[in-house]
Design a protein around this nucleic acid. Structure first.
Lengths: 354, 354
DNA sequence: CCGGACTGCTAAACCGATTAAGCACCTGCC
DNA sequence: GGCAGGTGCTTAATCGGTTTAGCAGTCCGG
């Protein structure tokens, strides 16, 4: 193959200097170069199929139009990937390219990935987690990097996380609004507890308090973060004596909710007639497929991913202090209403199904 | 911030020329430069924190150590993302970085993404689909680009797709081995039909033929690609008269299988005692969470992703013609044995459950 | 007719590396 | 003493652009 077509070729063909071509194609100092010349240059450029070499340009301008997106994992939880998709989309809208690196959470890999990206002269970094976490920002991550689904243990970085507390408030409020007063929280059991666990608990308690409902410790149960754990946990609260038994379940996530459905079935309870259930995460594969479809709270992965690169590129104003908590912005988690919430049963909590 | 540390700084500090530094740090022409000097250069480089500028190097050497990964989507099906993860992992192992672009399948976006990536001088392209498809390779995609989960409609490109037919063979064979002779295929209903649908049907029929089982057209049913569709389709075959009713279901995917579980429940059939079920895709969220856990066929996303970049980088030999079909390599789909397959019921297909 | 301002460009340095060509010095041999 | 050959580097060109400074030429006012 012959040499790539460069700015010089355009210059020669158009009968001007390379400098002029550069000025024209970058709309620089445009006043000084007459339209006629500009048109000619542009015509020639497109005729001979000129394409700029971003490398060369970046070398000179020190802006490469690339972003390093470093993430602990990418494929753990299915929908967190939306963050990446949204980040890439936002990057594309602003003519940037995303370098994707997943480190598996290994600090050494992380460090070396950051160095590599720096040597590629990325314009900035997004440091993402696939779970809402507090992170020790890796040494070497430049100031101004933005944190995604992570809050910095120390240091000031723009950061965005889901508003787990607000999401829980919306979920539990929906239950209260439907008339429930005995609402259980099927929490997750993990070591260490995810940040979201405590935040959602706060939201849960906040709504109860506002509604004048005294929290019942027996209604806060924990289970492993899967359907089996959800089933076991739900089973415990559903086995309580009738007057103590909850009429609604707020589940830490959709998998627990899936287990709760199974437990409800075993107890002969129909959803939402006898028991209302709200999940969290809005995992389509579960939430939409369950029978009945699960009312749940969605994680704003898309919005967060977009936010991160827009802030990084400076095309979105960083929020004022009122929108943030300790400097990290809380992205709202919308309640997705489907069919698993209804009013509490009026009398006996339902008859057995066959 | 002061200027970046460059090769010249190392040169000055070590008392040699920039050329020497370059030669030493790249282990070039090493015979001509004495160990003492080399050590000194390397020491200085690390002392003053020299990091090479990959852009400058790439400009000169015409190798940027970057790969363009362009994909129709990234977040549609959760586990397909593993392809990206594996591709990135393989790239990292060979000191390459991945530019991730998702185009949403829009040809115009695709075209422009490819141009952008070219202007960034990527060393090569992976063109990926999130579903096994035949694709019209976009104009502008250079020869030598590798196709991932896609087979080219025309033109010769290295390409890898899952061996859907082989996966179906494994699945149905497991059923036959368990003793089943009446095996239904719960196929997907979509327009157009995915390639996988036909291939898995071929595998299904192949096993039946080998086992001397005459296929029963009534046992090949289609449903929408979700739990509801699976339920409806399963319902149809389970409602057949006892002597025609299948004792095992091979499902196009795990979501259909999930629906089949529900249908089985409605018919009072226990899995695997009364009915055996095999899925496809191994979507953890479904397959592992179902009760009982679903035996299914896994898509080799990880292996395919890795294959693509290894072939692109020339570190893996392209397969001989025996491993391929029309020049595209078929990556095996392993059967994941869980608990949804058992021998067919001996007499009556089970009593009603309470 | 001269000087200043404006117009329309170009020359050349620069970004940070790689690399081909070659220079200066030393040694050894005839 | 002269020359070949080896050693240990350096010089300078190059990759493909951007950008600053400034050069010619023209116009215009005085």
């Amino acid at each position: 193959m012959s040499r790539r077509i460069g700015i010089k070729d355009v210059a020669r063909e158009a009968g001007v200097s390379a400098a002029t071509v550069s000025l024209v194609l970058n709309d620089r100092a445009t006043t000084r170069i007459p339209e006629a010349t500009q048109d000619r240059v542009r015509r020639v450029a497109s005729d001979i199929g000129y394409a700029p070499n971003t490398l060369a340009r970046g070398l000179r301008t020190r802006r490469t139009h690339t972003i390093g997106f470093v993430s602990d994992r990418i494929a753990t939880t299915p929908y967190a990937v939306r963050m990446i998709e949204a980040a890439q989309e936002a990057a594309r809208e602003h003519a940037h390219l995303l370098f994707l690196v997943s480190t598996g959470g290994d600090p050494e890999v992380e460090r070396s990935a950051i160095e590599t990206l720096k040597s590629h002269q990325v314009d900035g970094f997004v440091y993402a987690c696939m779970w809402h976490r507090e992170v020790e920002v890796p040494a070497g991550l430049p100031a101004g990097s933005v944190l995604l689904d992570a809050r910095p243990a120390r240091g000031a970085y723009p950061a965005v996380v889901p508003d787990d507390r607000g999401g829980a408030v919306a979920a539990v409020q929906a239950l209260v609004d439907a008339g429930h007063t005995r609402i259980a929280y099927l929490d997750v059991e993990e070591d260490p507890l995810p940040l979201a666990s405590g935040l959602r608990l706060e939201g849960y308690l906040e709504v109860l308090a506002r509604a004048g409902i005294t929290p019942d410790a027996a209604l806060h149960v924990r289970g492993a973060s899967d359907a089996a754990g959800g089933m076991a946990a739900a089973d415990r609260v559903l086995a309580l004596p009738p007057e103590q038994r909850p009429t609604a379940l707020f589940c830490f996530n959709d998998r627990l909710a899936m287990g709760a459905y199974a437990a409800a079935r075993h107890h002969g309870l129909a959803i939402p007639t006898d028991l209302s259930v709200v999940g969290y995460d809005d995992q389509q594969l579960i939430a939409a497929e369950l029978d009945p479809p699960l009312t749940t709270v969605a994680l704003p992965h898309h919005e967060m991913g977009r936010w991160a690169v827009e802030v990084l590129l400076g095309v979105r104003d960083r929020p004022g202090p009122d929108e943030t908590e300790d400097g990290v912005v809380l992205m709202p988690c919308p309640l997705i209403r489907r069919d698993s919430v209804g009013p509490p049963p009026t009398r006996e909590p339902g008859r057995r199904r066959v």
